[in-house]
Structures are given as structure tokens and as C-alpha cells.
């Protein structure tokens, strides 16, 4: 029994990591007042960018260096998704396009681009049309060598690739920056009340651009983790599923606090796979269980709307463009 629970917890954490990257990135973005619904597309791009980077490195014929095996996909994922966030920023901040429409368009675009390159790459692989970058995947999956020797604790909590720990570190750092630094204070002010921030001498445009792009880059690492660590270096079109939307739901569940989203991601990850651990479920009732994270999010939204605590509300100017002249 205890073994089953331990495996479940481990699997929940594994499922939670991409969600944590996505939600941390989206929280940073939303704190600047930008509601980036392009996150699913951005995470998808993060995944395919890492595959492209890894493919060219693996097929370049040089002796593979494990450090480069990790760094190349990592940078590709980060900058590929950052580029997507830059498109979003340019459209919504500079051109003041509607944020919801832009975000949804970016999600559709990102999935399309991902599938296009996925398709082209698989035709390059030829044999069966599946892409597999096992050696890169192995580098990402590498765990602490002594983890297995530490019994149940080691197996459950120390047996992940480094990206899992990095996701928690990034969430903690984001939380610290938001609450304990000048930059964080200014960023929160921009998302709450850009006119006041502007009057106080804060460069609203710069804060919005940087927060959105960095947030996008972090979210893209979720795609990287999914492809390289969880799957182990194989790409299939559409394999990422609805994890991007789940990450956005997690932002609401975590009440816009990166610290909360660490535990939230594990809970969501657990709810996402709990149907595998309940025996005797039919195909259709499995789908009901897969909805649980969204149900939980709706419940949280209802409770928050009733309680109306100011700390738990979204940034006040979330989703609104800022025009200095319109004050």
C-alpha cells in the first residue's frame, strides 16, 4: 500500500513540474497586468524548440558532451518561447491589441508551428516517422546517483531530473523577488495601477515587456521538461495535451502566488493521473476524473469571489492595455 502511495506521489510531482513552470511564468506575466492566454502555445513551442536544438546537436556528428546535451535544448526552449512572448508583448503593449484575442491566437499559432516542425522532423527521421532523441533525454533524466539507496524517501523525492528541482527553485525565487525586492514592488504596482506606477517614475512599458518575456521563457521550460525528461526525448504531435490550460488554471488556484503553485502543481498533477490509481474505471469515467483540476479551480474561484479578500484577487488592471493619455 505504502509503495502505491509513494509511486502516486512521485508521479504526481512528475506531472506537476510542467504545470509549475507554466504557472510561475504566467504569474510573473500577469503581475505586470498582461493576461497571456498564449501560454499553451508558448509551452508547445518550448518543447519543439528543444527538440530542434537537440536534433541538430545529436545529428551534427560531433562527440556528444552531456553538458551541451542539456544546455543546447535548454536555451533553445527558453529563447524559442521567449520569442513567442515577445510577439505577444509587441502586439498587446506596443500595438495595444486585445490581450485575450492575441493570447488565443498565439496558442493556436504555437501548436500549429510545433506540429509543422514536428512533422518535418519526423520525415527526416524516416524510420516509422517518430522522433526520438534518447541520448539527450538520458542527460535530462540523470538523477542523483545515490538517490535509490536512500530507501522510500530517496525513491519518492530525490529521483527526479534536475529540471524538477529547478522548477521549485524558480518558483521560490519568483516569490521572493515579487515580495521582497524593489523590482517586485514596482512590478506589482504596474499590474495593479499602471497610471500610479507611471506617475511614480516607473517605466511601465519596460516592466510589462520584461515580465511577459521572462514569464514566457520560464513557461517554455515546462515544454522542455515534458519532452526531454518525462517522455525521454521523443516528440509526437499533440502529445503535450491540455497541460498549458491546466497551468493557467493553476495560476488562479494558486491565487497569483508562485509559492502556492508549488503545492498546487503537485495536487493538480495528482488529480490529473488519479484515475490510473482507482481500479475498475471505465473509459468514460476516466475522463470525468481528468476534469478534476478544472473543477477544483472553479470551486476556488467561487470561494474567492465570495470571500473577496483583496490579497487574493487578480492584479487590478489584468487584461487592460495602458494608455498614458487616457488617464
Amino acid at each position: 500500500m505504502i509503495d502505491i502511495i509513494a509511486t502516486f506521489v512521485k508521479q504526481a510531482i512528475i506531472q506537476g513540474v510542467p504545470l509549475l513552470y507554466g504557472s510561475t511564468g504566467e504569474i510573473i506575466t500577469e503581475k505586470s497586468g498582461n493576461l497571456n492566454l498564449g501560454i499553451p502555445g508558448i509551452m508547445y513551442i518550448g518543447g519543439i524548440s528543444s527538440v530542434i536544438g537537440a536534433y541538430f546537436y545529436e545529428s551534427s556528428g560531433v562527440e556528444l558532451n552531456p553538458v551541451l546535451c542539456v544546455l543546447i535544448p535548454l536555451f533553445c526552449a527558453f529563447f524559442g518561447s521567449m520569442l513567442m512572448a515577445l510577439i505577444y508583448s509587441f502586439l498587446t503593449i506596443t500595438l495595444r491589441a486585445n490581450q485575450n484575442v492575441t493570447g488565443l491566437a498565439l496558442t493556436t499559432f504555437g501548436v500549429g508551428v510545433g506540429n509543422f516542425f514536428g512533422g518535418s522532423l519526423s520525415s527526416l527521421f524516416g524510420e516509422g516517422g517518430s522522433i526520438s532523441l534518447i541520448r539527450t533525454g538520458e542527460c535530462f533524466k540523470a538523477t542523483l546517483p545515490f538517490a535509490d539507496k536512500l530507501g522510500l524517501f530517496g525513491k519518492t523525492f530525490l529521483s527526479f531530473g534536475f529540471l524538477a528541482y529547478l522548477s521549485i527553485i524558480i518558483a521560490l525565487v519568483a516569490s521572493w523577488v515579487l515580495n521582497h525586492t524593489r523590482v517586485g514592488l514596482n512590478l506589482r504596482a504596474v499590474g495593479e495601477n499602471p497610471a500610479t506606477a507611471d506617475a511614480a517614475g516607473i517605466n511601465v512599458t519596460r516592466y510589462k515587456y520584461l515580465a511577459t518575456c521572462i514569464g514566457g521563457g520560464i513557461a517554455g521550460l515546462g515544454g522542455l521538461y515534458f519532452i526531454m525528461d518525462y517522455i525521454g526525448g521523443a516528440w509526437t504531435n499533440g502529445g503535450f495535451g491540455d497541460r498549458g490550460w491546466l497551468a493557467i488554471a493553476l495560476v488562479i488556484f494558486a491565487l497569483w502566488k508562485p509559492k502556492h503553485s508549488i503545492l498546487g502543481s503537485i495536487l493538480f498533477g495528482g488529480l490529473y493521473i488519479v484515475y490510473l490509481y482507482i481500479p475498475g474505471l471505465s473509459r468514460s469515467s476516466q475522463e470525468i476524473f481528468k476534469m478534476l483540476p478544472y473543477v477544483v479551480t472553479i470551486v476556488v474561484l467561487v470561494i474567492m469571489s465570495i470571500r473577496k479578500r483583496h490579497e487574493n484577487q487578480p492584479p487590478a488592471s489584468l487584461g487592460l492595455s495602458y494608455f498614458r493619455e487616457e488617464r
Binding site: R182, L185, A189, E192, T196, A197, G201, Q313
Partner: peptide
């Protein structure tokens, strides 16, 4: 219009370098 969710002190140092 001070920023609602911030404290008085946070509002006062807002934007200062």
C-alpha cells in the same frame, strides 16, 4: 490613487531608486 493591495510604506517608496 495609491495602489490598493500595497501597504502605506510600499506605496511611499514605489518607483524610487
Amino acid at each position: 490613487k495609491p495602489v490598493d493591495v500595497l501597504s502605506a510604506a510600499e506605496n511611499i517608496v514605489l518607483g524610487l531608486k
